[in-house]
Amino acid sequence: MAFEIRKYGAIDIGSNAIRLLIATVTLYNDQPPVFKKTSLVRVPIRLGQDVFTSGHISKENIERMISSMKSYQLLMDVHKVKTYKAYATSAMREAQNGEDVVAQIEKESGIHIDIIDGSHEAAIIAMTDLHAMIDESKVLLYVDVGGGSTEFTLFAFGKEIISRSFKIGTVRLLNDMVKKSLWDEAEQWIKEVTAPYERIDLIGSGGNINNIFKSSGKSMGKPLSYFYLLNYYEQLQNYNYEERVYHLNLNHDRADVIIPACRIYLRAMKWSRAKNIYVPKIGLTDGIIKSVFNADNR
């Protein structure tokens, strides 16, 4: 009888936060592997605030990143993680000192970081349990909203049709750095790629939509309607930042970005004529775990 337990690590260095996911993979005979999230740590380091406004990562945030990576390395050691991968996305891609920061972090913490582009990011996310939601009878627009960019992927009847990344992210929107022309470009693209299909549903990923879904009280697998999301968006706007933290119990680094995130999802739903959005609670770290496991079994 073959039985094995392995632990893998995934680090996602985003524009709004840095996450470490440690997952346990159980192998039993010739059965499919079972993936289970063991530990998830999120540190609210808003790199996008630095990069999108000044073009580089500040000394303060470099120090915070180094401290975070040292902590993540210790956590992975304690958990006896077999292999890990660390990926940096939009903010680090655009930081003038991005490569220098990566080298400094590796020197001081031992964590090696790969800076990836939007298409690589979308490909990693596609390795998650997303495929379980890709119903062969449906047309689905997958929308992953981050701090620096949003990735869109259209699936039709079980097949991936087209994918595209736009520099429309929550941190950029907070800093009024998304021009109307880019919104217009995204609108035109979504309308064009979804036009041939009669009915579209959205799949949403990202910390903000996960938070909204959790507060809805809906059971997993049930969608949020366009009108629910619109009402929630309007409710958010009735509170100021402090009230959203206090009355809605939102994290301080979530209470501001959740409004532009809602705006992105609502516009994507409107432009694609979608009435529902499904929230499977998957993200880049889940895809990284799958990619590390697959590489380990080649």
Rank of each mutant, 00 (worst) to 15 (best):
G158P: 14
E187F: 02
G9Q: 14
Y87W: 01
G204L: 01
E160H: 10
I134L: 04
A23Q: 10
P44C: 09
K36D: 13
I125F: 13
R42Y: 09
R93P: 06
T83L: 13
D184S: 15
T89N: 05
Y72C: 14
F35P: 03
E4H: 10
P44F: 07
A255R: 00
Y87H: 02
L224F: 05
I125C: 09
K180I: 08
S71Y: 11
A88T: 08
L182H: 13
E108S: 02
K138Y: 01
R267Y: 08
K275W: 01
V245N: 03
S109G: 09
S163C: 10
I18K: 02
I134E: 09
N16M: 08
L75H: 11
H247L: 11
E60Y: 15
L141M: 07
E160Y: 09
R273V: 02
V257I: 14
D77C: 04
A2F: 11
I264Q: 00
N238P: 00
I115F: 00
I45R: 10
M76H: 12
D117G: 04
D176P: 03
A23C: 07
V25Y: 00
S149F: 05
I212G: 07
G98L: 00
M127D: 11
Y246V: 15
E60K: 15
W271Q: 04
L27Q: 06
Q188M: 10
I162L: 07
G206I: 11
P280A: 02
Y72Q: 03
E187P: 05
A86N: 12
T38P: 01
N297P: 00
Q237G: 08
P260F: 03
M220F: 08
I277T: 05
I212M: 10
M177E: 05
F157L: 11
S71A: 13
S225G: 11
E242P: 02
A268K: 01
V171R: 06
L20D: 04
N208E: 05
F155H: 15
Y232H: 04
K214Q: 15
N175R: 05
P223K: 06
T150Q: 13
R172T: 04
E121P: 01
P223L: 03
H56V: 14
I22Y: 03
